[in-house]
Simulated assay, not measured.
Amino acid sequence: MTAKTSRRALTSLRVVVLIVGAIVMVTPFLYMLSTSFKPQAYVLTTPPQFIPDPFTFDNYVQAWTTQDFSLYAMNSLIVAVIATGLSVLFSSMMAYAFTRFEFPGRKWIFRILLIGLMVPAMMLIIPQFVLAKYFGLLDSLAGLIVFYVAGSLALNTFLLRGFFAALPAELDQAMQMDGANAWTRYWKLALPLARPALATATIFTFLACWDEFAWALTIINSPQNRTLPIAIQLFQGQNATQWGLVFAASVIAIIPVIIVYLFFQRHFVQGLTSGAVKG
């Protein structure tokens, strides 16, 4: 077998593996989408039907109009947008400080920050609940936002620090010689060049805040403060689950995530092509 034939065989094998992996990943989503358009009586048919017959929009209408679903969606949107914005802002400032400033204990502070990546989130539920009770943040959207921001700072700072460290320090020095202070260098130089990393951090943070269930279920008691994951859980009854409603609500919940991903993916590619710097 020649080298050219071997490369072709390896390429074909990679394509087959990617196709199989794509099918495995996409099939559950397609089944969820299909089931969301089925009447309850046809949800659990055997064998599974990927083409709904009969076809209905009743699940979407009922999901959106039942149990203040639109209010819960708005609560999730408010929490996710504010928490994502604050987290990306604070973590980018911290990452820039770790890469561009010398101060006592810098390495140790960064290492302590990274310990947050090693602690499972469920182990922090009780300490977080005690803190939320002490600061009066129970049963409030502010209680969700504060702890979502705190929980995402470590990962975002780690991600952004690596990107800032790869930027040429000479650019900072040139702006500093022109009289630019630290804030100006951070805001007008580092952030525009870091658009790829900022887009990645934004996508992951928004997804984590939008889909979070355990902490929201722990501290939220009032119906007017519930978020979307709790609303979807309410469709699952004690005796029987209306899977059509659950899947329709899940599809509705996925739409904002897809929009955010598509929007920031465009900025991600743009940042790679127009903001790249070699040093």
Rank of each mutant, 00 (worst) to 15 (best):
M93W: 10
M93C: 07
M94Q: 10
A95H: 05
F98G: 00
F98W: 04
T99H: 02
T99A: 08
F101Y: 15
F101L: 10
F101G: 00
F103A: 04
F103N: 13
F103W: 15
F103E: 14
P104D: 14
P104F: 14
G105D: 11
R106I: 04
R106A: 11
I109N: 09
F110T: 09
F110Y: 15
R111K: 14
I112T: 14
I112H: 08
L114K: 03
I115H: 09
G116I: 03
L117A: 12
L117D: 08
M118D: 15
M118F: 14
V119C: 09
V119R: 07
P120N: 11
P120Q: 11
A121M: 07
A121G: 08
A121K: 10
A121Q: 11
M123P: 05
I125D: 06
I125K: 02
V130F: 13
L131H: 07
K133V: 00
Y134M: 15
Y134A: 10
Y134H: 11
G136E: 12
G136A: 07
G136V: 07
G136P: 07
G136L: 09
G136T: 02
L137A: 04
L138Y: 03
L138Q: 07
S140N: 11
L141Y: 10
I145V: 13
I145Y: 05
V146D: 06
F147R: 06
F147T: 02
F147C: 04
Y148L: 00
V149N: 01
S152H: 12
S152Y: 07
S152G: 09
L153Y: 04
A154V: 04
A154M: 05
L155N: 13
L155F: 15
L155Y: 15
T157Q: 02
T157D: 03
F158R: 14
L159T: 05
L160N: 09
G162Q: 12
F164I: 00
A165N: 14
A165V: 09
A166I: 06
P168I: 14
A169C: 03
A169N: 10
E170T: 12
L171S: 05
L171A: 06
D172A: 00
D172L: 01
Q173C: 04
A174S: 14
M175A: 11
M175N: 10
Q176A: 07
Q176I: 01
Q176S: 10
M177E: 06
M177V: 13
D178Y: 10
D178V: 06
G179Y: 05
A180H: 08
A180S: 08
N181K: 00
N181L: 06
A182R: 14
T184I: 09
Y186H: 09
K188F: 09
K188G: 01
L189C: 05
P192N: 07
L193K: 10
L193R: 03
A194T: 03
R195N: 08
P196L: 07
A197I: 03
L198N: 05
A199W: 01
A199D: 02
T200V: 11
A201N: 01
A201L: 03
A201M: 01
